[in-house]
Design a protein around this nucleic acid. Sequence first.
DNA 1: AATTAGCACTCGACTTCAATGAGTGCTAAC
DNA 2: GTTAGCACTCATTGAAGTCGAGTGCTAATT
Lengths: 342, 342
Amino acid sequence: MLTDRQLLILQVIVDDFIRSAQPVGSRSLSKKDEISFSSATIRNEMADLEELGYIEKTHTSSGRVPSEKGYRYYVDHLLSPQVLNKQDITIIQSIFAERIFEFEKIIQKSAKILSDLTNYTSIVLGPAASFNKLKRIQIIPLSKESAVAIFVTDSGHVENRTFYLPPTVDASDLEKTVNILNERLTGVALEDLNDKIYKELAMLLRQHIRNYDLMMHTIADSLKMPANEKLFFGGKTNMLSQPEFHDIGKIRELLQMIDHEEWIYPLIKNDSAGINVKIGRENKNSAMENCSLITATYSVGTEKLGTIAILGPTRMEYSRVISLLQFLSKDLTSVLTNLYQK
Amino acid sequence: MLTDRQLLILQVIVDDFIRSAQPVGSRSLSKKDEISFSSATIRNEMADLEELGYIEKTHTSSGRVPSEKGYRYYVDHLLSPQVLNKQDITIIQSIFAERIFEFEKIIQKSAKILSDLTNYTSIVLGPAASFNKLKRIQIIPLSKESAVAIFVTDSGHVENRTFYLPPTVDASDLEKTVNILNERLTGVALEDLNDKIYKELAMLLRQHIRNYDLMMHTIADSLKMPANEKLFFGGKTNMLSQPEFHDIGKIRELLQMIDHEEWIYPLIKNDSAGINVKIGRENKNSAMENCSLITATYSVGTEKLGTIAILGPTRMEYSRVISLLQFLSKDLTSVLTNLYQK
DNA sequence: AATTAGCACTCGACTTCAATGAGTGCTAAC
DNA sequence: GTTAGCACTCATTGAAGTCGAGTGCTAATT
């Protein structure tokens, strides 16, 4: 469809605009080393590219700016995969330098470092606790009327819930219940706990426990796991330094979105494995109109665990960001696989 | 020092400016009901007030704007305590409507509601976990090399740490240790644990445990509690709607500060009990130059637990915010006292 | 037939200028 | 002591003009 020359021009326009944030004119293009033809020729080609929807003018006599379609084409076909420099690699690897046992710390550090390296906003979706397998349940009475239930998973994740414990429940029953739960539920994924309690343990509990009904509901209730995994951010304010965000209204909209975690999930979830690029309105979100989101998944073994993402302006350094995410997600996956898949 | 008329004028200027965000001129002042003298008189008085440093001009021929000193005087002497309307009271009390067992939920909801009611940013400093008394320690091995230690406090707060557990430590020793810890440390404040372990338990452990040294250090290490209490925010982006923040640089500075929790602590800690107002540069923080911070403390019984604060522009509705904070902190204190002081 | 030089034209960005009006300070009259 | 009156200041607004980087089109060149 597009001639080689048009491709070249499109690529140079996108590259230049990503660098400078200024509309690109035919004259400045013609001066580039890669380009050997005159500005008039470029103007003709640009007119064609514009007609095809790959580039746009900001006003009648301005230079050209990539359209979303242009970025999309650029990302899909023109991206020259950038090799990370040693410094970047060292910095990323520093995430794993310390002996860290907790997911969260690693994840958090990843978010911080990603945003520092890119100057964009990073979003890391932590591992879904619901996949973890239960290791131990503990119930500890606090007062006459309340107790705290603690759930430890095989990955070392600890969940806890304080709940109302009617004084009518006696200690030995509680103990028995906990024993039964531990016996029967160890190794079960958190998300399946509730189901399993009702389906398989109801009978058993009924046999042994006096206050069976109350007990079951109380515990099952407190087991309603949070629907969403934890999100970590880095560089929330980095977008404020991007020249495209001079408008406070836009900024407010964007920051407001970032501060509403529940609005972020739909953006970064449900992405297939590997790198995923969503440009501008592809994100189906008005606050993201001038933003692109690049996501990558990380796993333990073959099981997808979470997502790391970079949120930047559509005029984002796609090549660099993709390389960084690829590298980090690979590292994360291998470190986590080593650590937890034994 | 100041005449009654000067006080009146200062008060009306501050009130008006808080409402309109526009410099106040002598003519518009003279039209107010409260004011019965001519604009020329007002001009004379304003000149005096300016000389004394209570008000300022933005340029030679502009109306007047309160200075920090002016706000300070206003807050200290001219504030007409505002009575909260019923709606506000209802909304605040809705925080406690549900039966909630966890501090965090209450605190979080308080932050949200405060920012909604004021349209400023709210900051709530959660209760210092370190004051809580230990209820139970549990150590649960995860793999050959790691285990998680769980600390439950009498308030239902759960802390956990994953740590490296050398394979050389055997199970019975671990159990013995945990038993000893529980026996000796229950009721001790979290912040004193470390001390107590080294001073009082070292001997005891040495007698019973083979790998005593290693064990002790591992556990004591994982007991290093986070130095700071948790912070909760509401309305982080509210400041973006304030007309004084049209400058992106200023906004960035402010938001950046808000996102660095460690920079927030010094601002809201170390305040004496009760309401505390810091205006502009009184906060000793360049990002806060045009902001005021109003804080209030809440307690259980007589023990100060945490702080609730509102961050707004210096042109803030002091009267309303102070009333809200007073009311909420009183409610928080009484609810928490009922809940936990038994 | 493709490329390029040349040129008229467009339009945002910036500057200048004058008009407007909300504000001031000062003086003199009340 | 208060106020009316007046000259003065200065931010804001809008109109007019210049500049320059850009375009599209046409005609000459390769």
